[in-house]
């Protein structure tokens, strides 16, 4: 039964690769033949070529570094902060009751509406981006942490008491591992949201960073550079997300989730 499932998975993967490859191929042909004007979309091969050229130009390093360090900081802050806040809210019912309505409505708000305000407060530069991305990503981690801790089966806590674990041991040996799948989904979201927050912020209002470079290339009708950078961002983010996803899958498979 397991083998059959793995086979079906494999088949879906192959079809997926084939579908994506033929989509790229079709776009390539459409661009080469001239069905799609180069002012709209350039051929995938041209994108790759432009990407290589762009990566060789000297100015890109600084933008890349700025974007990635902002993402890294936002990621760290939102994962650690989100975990701690979620932990406290789980433990203190009063605080939780007070904050629950906020959390339920949080992702309904188009938070980018507040981005201009952050710029007014923090000025242009990495600070408002990091704040924005952290605020965006942290709540996902808070919610995931609470969900994970809430769902620790009571019988496991009874088992902890049977083995007479101390509170710290109970948290470390029972509650956290039991909540791990939820924590990991929180991390996955926090990673994706940190990228989204930083790059979208750069795109709209910033004077540097990869997001800004894309917008800038668009404004200057520099399609090769624009597509090169879009490709670059999508590739980086997808790699990152896939790495987290793969780790999660490994853990889940072992635990049979």
């Amino acid at each position: 039964m397991k083998v059959g499932k793995a086979k079906a998975d494999n088949r879906a993967t192959w079809i997926r690769v084939a579908v994506l490859a033929s989509a790229v191929g079709a776009l390539e042909i459409a661009c080469r033949v001239g069905w799609v004007p180069a002012t709209m979309v350039i051929a995938p091969s041209a994108m790759v070529k432009a990407l290589i050229e762009t990566l060789q130009s000297d100015d890109i390093g600084a933008h890349l570094q700025q974007t990635l360090s902002a993402v890294a900081i936002a990621m760290g802050l939102s994962i650690v902060g989100g975990f701690l806040i979620g932990f406290v809210l789980h433990w203190v019912p009063f605080l939780r009751r007070a904050f629950n309505p906020f959390l339920a409505a949080y992702y309904a708000i188009p938070h980018f509406a507040f981005y201009p305000l952050l710029i007014v407060i923090f000025g242009l530069g990495p600070a408002p981006l990091i704040v924005l991305a952290t605020l965006f990503a942290m709540v996902a981690m808070i919610v995931a942490t609470m969900a994970g801790l809430d769902r620790v089966p009571r019988v496991l806590l009874k088992t902890a008491r049977m083995h007479r674990l101390s509170l710290l041991e109970e948290i470390w040996r029972i509650r956290l591992p039991a909540a791990a799948p939820h924590l990991l989904s929180g991390v996955k979201l926090a990673v994706a949201y940190s990228f989204i927050g930083v790059i979208a912020g750069e795109f709209i209002l910033s004077t540097s960073g990869i997001g800004h470079e894309i917008a800038y290339a668009y404004d200057n009708f520099d399609n090769p550079r624009m597509y090169a950078l879009i490709l670059f961002v999508l590739a980086i983010v997808t790699c990152f997300n896939m790495a987290v996803y793969a780790y999660e899958r490994r853990l889940a498979r072992r635990r049979g989730a």
Binding site: P153, V155, K158, T159, M162, I174, P177, A178, A180, R255
Partner: peptide
């Protein structure tokens, strides 16, 4: 000196 086996599955999945 007291050991308990619970009604629910209490094995640690991790």
């Amino acid at each position: 000196g007291v050991g308990v086996v619970f009604q629910e599955d209490a094995s640690f999945p991790w």
